[in-house]
């Protein structure tokens, strides 16, 4: 019972003092699903993800992974942040190893996983560099490798490509899709970029302004690889855009 969904969010509510930010949100995510969450700027998307990952204490409601309340020590979760989150005192390789070492994985597995994902994101050549020697996109790729290296059952991403230019974003989006299909993880991806959401997702949740609720749920069955110029793609993007406009 309850195991048909990977993630169940029931009546999630978050208040900062008297300010109601998340208002009684409920939704479920299936195993291996790629869920995108979009909404107007400042609608509390990051609060939403931070509540989901238990970085913030929630005011009311419950969040279950495999039918059990979220416990970051037990559930294998990884989070890719909007800001740069590599540790400046570690090399790129040590950064990718970080999660595995926290989880006390055996040394052989650490080596194997790190080699594999450094290669997947094209950073093998740069593994002994320090973060301040690398470009923005390389740093975000290192963060992605670090997240995938622990083989997370749930991967949370908060506008990971928000600060990158379009070309790099396209490239990293394709890379992400490839990793997601290969590793087979459940992804919740937050973005304010509608095109990105339509390009990546199986399903899109559109959020309202604060206090945040789910405005609409859109299934996205466009075949992959997707083409942003395809009429069906454009149509879906327009549909989501119309939902977000609040003016």
């Amino acid at each position: 019972m309850g195991n048909e969904y990977k993630v169940q969010v029931n009546h999630l509510t978050k208040k900062f003092g008297n300010l109601l930010v998340l208002d009684d949100i409920s939704f479920h995510v299936k195993e291996n699903e790629f869920l995108c969450i979009v909404g107007p700027t400042g609608c509390g998307k990051t609060t939403f993800l931070n509540s989901l990952s238990k970085l913030y204490d929630i005011t009311a409601g419950e969040i279950l992974i495999n039918g059990m309340p979220v416990d970051l020590k037990k559930h294998n979760v990884a989070y890719i942040f909007q800001e740069y989150s590599n540790m400046p005192w570690l090399t790129i390789r040590q950064n990718v190893e970080f999660g595995l070492r926290i989880k006390h994985r055996p040394e052989a597995e650490i080596r194997e996983q790190t080699d594999y994902f450094l290669d997947m994101v094209g950073l093998t050549k740069f593994q002994d560099y320090y973060p301040d020697q690398l470009s923005a996109s390389m740093l975000q790729r290192a963060a992605i490798a670090r997240a995938f290296a622990v083989k997370p059952e749930l991967l949370l991403m908060d506008e990971p490509y928000g600060q990158l230019d379009i070309e790099l974003r396209f490239r990293l989006e394709d890379e992400l899709i490839r990793l997601w299909r290969e590793v087979g993880t459940t992804v919740i991806f937050i973005t304010h970029n509608i095109e990105e959401a339509v390009y990546l997702s199986n399903r899109i949740l559109v959020l309202t302004n604060k206090p945040t609720k789910i405005k609409e749920e859109i299934h996205n069955d466009l075949p992959r690889p997707r083409n942003i110029a395809d009429p069906a793609f454009v149509e879906l993007r327009r549909k989501v855009t119309d939902l977000i406009k609040w003016w």
Binding site: L55, L72, V77, A78, F81, L90, G99, I102, K103, R146
Partner: peptide
């Protein structure tokens, strides 16, 4: 954000201290 990275990987308080805060 560095503490959050550790926390989401399930780090204990002492891991956060020794692997994140003290190196910082």
């Amino acid at each position: 954000v560095h503490l959050w990275v550790g926390q989401t990987f399930g780090a204990t308080r002492s891991q956060l201290l020794f692997k994140v805060a003290i190196p910082t």
